[in-house]
Structure formats: structure tokens, C-alpha cells
Lab assay of single mutants.
Amino acid sequence: MAAGGDHGSPDSYRSPLASRYASPEMCFVFSDRYKFRTWRQLWLWLAEAEQTLGLPITDEQIQEMKSNLENIDFKMAAEEEKRLRHDVMAHVHTFGHCCPKAAGIIHLGATSCYVGDNTDLIILRNALDLLLPKLARVISRLADFAKERASLPTLGFTHFQPAQLTTVGKRCCLWIQDLCMDLQNLKRVRDDLRFRGVKGTTGTQASFLQLFEGDDHKVEQLDKMVTEKAGFKRAFIITGQTYTRKVDIEVLSVLASLGASVHKICTDIRLLANLKEMEEPFEKQQIGSSAMPYKRNPMRSERCCSLARHLMTLVMDPLQTASVQWFERTLDDSANRRICLAEAFLTADTILNTLQNISEGLVVYPKVIERRIRQELPFMATENIIMAMVKAGGSRQDCHEKIRVLSQQAASVVKQEGGDNDLIERIQVDAYFSPIHSQLDHLLDPSSFTGRASQQVQRFLEEEVYPLLKPYESVMKVKAELCL
């Protein structure tokens, strides 16, 4: 049975990233139509530049190519590739079939990587351009969430054990800070992308030097003109047959890092959902379990974690691919890159769409948070109580021993009897502590235990987050809708 299948058929496997999760716009960027249309555009740009620099290419040939950029006979191309065992030459023939007058000058002087690699770089750039505003929107939604809850005390956790208090907004800023680093890295790697350009079979530009009869300047002009037509500021000066596969490492490393950030955020949300302090959106008709109707599973956060793990592992592909590119190139890269580049971007696209949807509907339960604080705060307040007693004339050592005994009794009630923490009640009825009984409410005010959390939130948002989001103001209103 021949390899390949009808990918629109229910009898043929289709990647869930495309069929179930990723956005239509990201799927289109990695589609065959987008790819092969870009090949034709690159052939047109090459012909236009070659004509401008004096090669015998007519206006009629150029116009014929322009008129057929979208006229792609995919069936013919597939048949040609089956016959020739070469995808680029299959599309040269297919393009030439609908451009008979231009057929002889299509791909003039070029090698397969002229269309293959340059198209990949265009796709990487455009895919990054799709991700950047999506990530900015996630940051914006979380920034709104953090600002609104900047002063809401909550129990902090280290080692997932109760620690000092923080605020809900401050905790959210930990998430935002990681995503801001990801946004900066995505922008950097996007701006650092260079075009492969017009380089020939081993990167020496020998074929173009021959076409222009040894004119170095025209060869350099050709490279520059096509690079500018493709919208790049610069091209690699040095290439082998391909652009260095280190570029793929750079791009997928940034995406993998984004995956790590999203995994951490969504894990926190899942843990908070278990504590009943916070939940992701839950639709009115949504079913959490087929057997347990009360369940409210954090399905979206779980999906993000599941896909983020996949995204983090994909960076190993370009690392290994770059390491086995012998001399000017081997074909070890080809099949692998067809999979890992598309999957990385479709996965990143999915987790950003999902995280935006989550961040637009996060639900906080202040009463649950308050109750958990009441359970733990008495123990945390013991040092403040000791200091207040010393100020009232008591002995630190005597007070410490009193607190120690009462704390152990209260802990026994919590752990052995399943009761509430009654340390404060014990202190309130103990005559030894009568000098500070009137101060206990103040000493137990949760806001006095959150330090500068709310001020940190305000400063972080104003100095770091809002300036970073400013270039994306025009796209901030787009909502994230999930079908599944």
C-alpha cells in the first residue's frame, strides 16, 4: 500500500493539533497551500530580480507567473513527485505547466533550498508574528487579574506546605514575570531571523556568478533584492546548502521555554482548584465526569500541561538535527523538520489560546482563602504575639514557653481530632496574655502579614508589564474561544 493518505478522510490519521486544537490561522501558515504558494512567490521574486539585473526574462513571463501564483494543481504535483521522487522539481514542473512561456526560467540558477529553506524562514517569521500578540493578550488578562487582587491576602506555599502570606495578585505576578520573559525572547528570536537568500547549491553562489558572467556586484544585488522582497532586513552571508540548523534550535528553545512557563502556571491553577481557592472557567453544560456528576475538573489547565510537556520535548529534535548536518548538509534534517517545526508552533498556539481562555474567566473564592488563612495564621502570628507581650512588660522566655504549650495543644486538636485551630481562643482565655487581649485582632490582621506584596504588584505592572504590552494595544480586544 502506498504511503500517505487522504487526510480529510475519517479513515486516515490526522494530527489532533490540526484537527482538534490549533487555530485556523496557525494551521494555514503550515498548510501545503501556504507552503507551495510561497515557493511560487519566491520563484517570481527571483525572476523579477534577475530581470532587473539584466537576464533575458520578459515582462510577459513575469506576468504569467504572477497570474498563476494561486493556480496550484495539487493532484498534478503529487503525481509528479511520485514520478520524480523530488518535491521541488515536482512543483517546478507543475508551475511550468500553467506558465508555459515562463517554464524555462522558473528556478533559474537556484537549488531546492532556495524555495525550501527560504519558505521555512518566512513561515517561522509569520508563525512567530501570530504567537506574539496571543502571548501579549494572556499577559494582559493576567495583569488585569493581578491588579484587581493585588491586596487580597492568601496563604503562600513553599514545598506545598503553608508559608508566609502573600497576595493573590502577587502570586499571579510570578506567572506574568515568566511570560514577559517569554514574550521578550519570542520577539528577540523573531527579529534575529535572517533570510537564507540566493546562495546556490553549497552556499557559494557559483551558479549565479556564472549567470551574471562573473559580476560579483550583481550577485550581491540579486541576494539583497530577493531578501528585501521577502520582507527581511538581512540575509546570511555564510550558508551551506541550507541555512544553519542552529536557527531551528533557537526558535524551538524559546517555544519550549514558553511551554515550561505555561505548565507551571496551569499546575498552580490545578492545585488551587483542589484547594477550592480558584477555578478555571466551567461552562453551564460542561460535564466533569461521566460517573461523578459533582466533579469540576480543571480540564483546560490539564490540557495545557499535557501539550506543554510535548512542546518542551520537541527542542531535542533540532538539537540532534543540527549535530548531524555533515559538511554542507545531509538530508537527516528533512523529514524531522517537516514534523517538529509545525508541531512546535501548533502546540504553542494551542496552549496560548487555551491559557487566554482560562485567564479571561478565572474565578476566585475569597471566603475559602480566608478560612485557610484562619487555619494557619495563628501559628504564624506567634512571633508577633511574643513581641507584643514583651512590649507590655512580659518575659520573652516565659511567653515563648506559654505559646509553645498552647500551640501544641491547638495542633493536637487540628491533627488528632480534625478540629479547627483554636490557638487564639486559648490565648484569649489565658490570664497571662490579658495585657494584649485587646491587640489580638490587630495582630491577626492578614494584611499585616503580606509585606509589600501589593506595592510590588503595582510597581511591576507599571514599570515592566504595561510598557512591554504597549506595541500590542491594537490587538488586545480579541477574545479566545474554545470549541473543545
Rank of each mutant, 00 (worst) to 15 (best):
S12W: 12
P16A: 10
V29E: 00
S31R: 03
D32T: 12
R37P: 01
R40P: 02
Q41W: 14
Q41V: 10
E48C: 06
E60G: 11
F74L: 13
K75H: 13
A77Q: 15
R83C: 10
L84E: 14
H86Y: 00
H86S: 01
V88N: 04
A90L: 00
H91P: 00
H93S: 14
G96I: 08
A102D: 01
L108V: 09
T111L: 01
D117V: 00
D120A: 07
L121Q: 10
L124W: 14
L124R: 04
L128T: 13
L128S: 10
L132P: 11
L135I: 12
R137T: 15
R137D: 08
A143D: 02
K147V: 09
E148Q: 12
R149Y: 08
A150G: 10
F160I: 01
Q161P: 01
M181E: 08
D182L: 01
Q184N: 09
Q184D: 14
R188T: 07
D191R: 09
F195H: 04
K199G: 01
G200E: 01
G203Q: 01
G203I: 00
G203R: 00
Q205S: 15
F212I: 05
F212S: 05
G214R: 10
V219E: 00
E228R: 12
G231C: 07
I237A: 06
I238L: 04
R245Q: 08
S253N: 13
A256P: 03
T267L: 11
A273L: 03
N274E: 08
L275G: 04
P293E: 01
N297A: 00
N297C: 03
R300E: 03
S301M: 11
S301L: 15
R303T: 04
C304S: 10
S306Y: 04
L307K: 08
T313W: 10
Q320R: 06
S323P: 05
S323Y: 05
F327W: 03
T330E: 02
T330S: 10
S334A: 04
N336T: 15
I339L: 11
E343M: 05
T350V: 15
L362C: 08
V368R: 11
F379G: 04
M380R: 03
M380G: 03
T382F: 04
M389G: 06
G393L: 06
D398M: 14
K402G: 05
R404L: 09
V405P: 01
S407L: 14
S412E: 12
D422L: 06
E425D: 12
Q428F: 13
Y432V: 07
P435V: 06
I436E: 05
A453S: 13
Q456N: 05
R459A: 11
E463P: 04
P471L: 15
Y472S: 09
V478R: 15
A480R: 15
